[in-house]
Design a protein around this nucleic acid. Sequence first.
DNA 1: CGGTATCCTGACCGATACTG
DNA 2: CAGTATCGGTCAGGATACCG
Lengths: 133, 133
Amino acid sequence: MKSIAETIRRGELLSAECPSREVLKHVTSRWGVLLLVVLLGGTHRFSELHRKIGGVSEKMLAQTLKWLEQDGLVLRKSYATVPPHVEYSLTPLGLEVGKRVESLADWIEFNLPRIMEVRQQTSAVEAMEERVS
Amino acid sequence: MKSIAETIRRGELLSAECPSREVLKHVTSRWGVLLLVVLLGGTHRFSELHRKIGGVSEKMLAQTLKWLEQDGLVLRKSYATVPPHVEYSLTPLGLEVGKRVESLADWIEFNLPRIMEVRQQTSAVEAMEERVS
DNA sequence: CGGTATCCTGACCGATACTG
DNA sequence: CAGTATCGGTCAGGATACCG
């Protein structure tokens, strides 16, 4: 009898029908990444998230929050007050993905100079080849 | 005198104009993630990538490869033979991101059962609330 | 305050056909 | 084999207005 872990293992993700793709889509979505990173910093209210994440619209913020909530990564706590008070935080599951996403985001921020350098060189080479042809 | 690392640090990514967003977009794009994971397994030819990554079109594969190549994450080696022979592999930079992306992908695959379970519960609750209203 | 509903545009992306 | 070119549809996502 194989364990679930052994049965699923690697490579499923490469299949077009793999349900993991859906979750991956939410997590790696334009605002999903940033949302997870911010929420790693602690509980936030809707308006706080909206302010911290530059460029996000209310619509997309709400939608992304809903995705992650349905995937069990984000916890939504609503207090029945007037005016309304809603708090978002990471579930234990969300904390796990969050850490991995942050690791990726941090790496990119930290190594951006090296990447920009490569980009410069590439466009320089292309400009030369342009002149030759 | 601050080091570059200290100067950049955290939070730049949260600003809408941060150039990191562009790289993040390429890496976390629909096919970027899968591409990096596959290339972690070693050098591949175009057709091999196309076969391994279920559901990707030639167009999007070529485009994603080009993005990652320009970001210095993927190395493209072309041999002047007939028929053409092109090999793609990860640069040292690409290896770094690749490992982090794989960590994320692996986590999702492995924990998918737990996530699906949450999803089920959510839709069950919604069905109940539907009946009440 | 914390959303939802609606409309709308551009970008993404797949299908097809063609090329070195 | 390894792409590029073009077309067209879908959809992410922004703007605006409105609601509990």
